[in-house]
């Protein structure tokens, strides 16, 4: 389970910056960037504590 949370959180973290890169390459509109960043932000804060908490133990 720890592994799953870790993978999900890294995906969310990547999803925080990837939309900006796609916007830079004209592959995504600004509103979609803002929405995706928000979803990924929520994803990070939901999943990261699940494994970071244990690691800090």
């Amino acid at each position: 389970m720890n592994f799953v949370f870790r993978v999900l959180s890294y995906l969310a973290l990547g999803g925080t910056v990837l939309p900006a890169a796609l916007f830079f390459g004209d592959r995504m509109g600004l509103e979609a960037v803002k929405f995706t960043m928000l979803v990924c932000t929520i994803g990070w804060f939901v999943t990261a504590p699940c494994w970071m908490e244990r690691r800090e133990g």
Binding site: L13, T16, V17, A20, F24, V33, M37, P49, M52, E53
Partner: peptide
């Protein structure tokens, strides 16, 4: 302080996103 630890990598990437979006 614990929350700040979770937030740190996310904040770094949001700052990077500010720059990339701003440049475009």
């Amino acid at each position: 302080a614990r929350f700040a630890n979770y937030a740190a990598p996310w904040m770094v990437l949001v700052f990077l996103a500010y720059g990339i979006v701003g440049l475009r």
